[in-house]
Amino acid sequence: MSGPILFVDDDPLVRATMVEALAVAGFDVTAAASGDEALARLEAGCPVRHVVSDIVMPGTLDGVGLAKVVAERYPDVRVVLATGHSERRVSLPGVRLLAKPYDLAQLFAAFE
């Protein structure tokens, strides 16, 4: 498994750890600290096959909002949302939801 991924999380430690792990696994990873930054990267033409995003983030665009924009504007991009809030439910066609903490095997399974 490989390809371009946009990883979005406002926690610098989570972001750095996952970017490194995904790069070691063979992915070309671009990171963003917010939904707004992620959307700006997409609009700038950043090549992406998957977007992996935290749900709760600062800024005007949280993970759910980002997923909606991606589904509308970039229908070939698959989205995986992650949350540490077990009560949070997301029902968006084609969007997978992972509970934090998750491991790489769970993330890779969500890509399928």
Rank of each mutant, 00 (worst) to 15 (best):
M1W: 05
P4K: 08
I5R: 10
L6T: 09
L6N: 06
V8M: 11
D9S: 04
D10A: 09
D10Y: 07
D11C: 11
D11W: 11
P12F: 14
P12Q: 13
L13T: 10
R15Q: 11
R15D: 12
R15W: 03
R15P: 09
A16R: 07
A16W: 07
T17Q: 08
M18S: 05
V19N: 05
E20L: 12
A21M: 14
A21C: 10
L22N: 07
L22C: 05
A23L: 03
A23W: 13
V24L: 14
V24E: 15
V24G: 13
A25N: 11
A25E: 15
A25Y: 12
A25C: 06
A25M: 08
F27S: 06
F27I: 04
V29I: 03
V29N: 07
T30P: 02
A31E: 15
A31H: 15
A31Q: 12
A33L: 07
A33I: 08
S34K: 15
S34G: 06
G35H: 12
D36H: 13
E37T: 15
E37V: 15
A40F: 09
R41P: 06
L42V: 13
L42N: 08
E43D: 15
E43G: 13
G45E: 12
G45T: 14
G45N: 09
V48P: 06
V48R: 13
H50E: 09
H50P: 00
V51Q: 10
V51C: 14
I55G: 00
I55N: 00
V56I: 12
V56R: 14
M57E: 04
P58H: 07
P58V: 02
G59H: 08
T60R: 12
L61F: 02
L61G: 01
D62G: 08
G63Y: 01
G63E: 01
G63S: 01
L66T: 08
L66S: 01
K68T: 12
K68C: 10
K68N: 14
V70E: 01
A71H: 06
A71N: 08
A71Y: 00
E72K: 08
E72P: 00
R73Y: 01
R73D: 11
R73S: 11
Y74C: 02
P75E: 06
P75L: 13
P75M: 12
D76W: 12
D76T: 11
R78D: 04
V79S: 07
V79T: 14
V79E: 02
V80C: 06
V80E: 01
V80I: 06
L81G: 03
A82H: 03
A82S: 13
A82P: 10
A82I: 00
T83L: 00
G84F: 08
H85V: 10
H85T: 09
H85D: 13
S86N: 04
E87L: 04
E87T: 06
R88P: 01
R89S: 08
R89E: 12
R89C: 04
R89H: 14
L92G: 04
L92Q: 10
P93A: 14
P93I: 00
G94R: 02
R96D: 00
L97G: 00
L97S: 00
L97W: 00
L97V: 00
L98K: 05
A99Y: 02
P101H: 00
P101R: 03
P101L: 03
Y102T: 01
D103W: 07
L104H: 08
L104D: 05
L104N: 10
A105K: 10
A105E: 14
A105H: 10
A105T: 14
L107Y: 02
F108N: 06
F108S: 12
F108I: 15
A109E: 15
A109S: 15
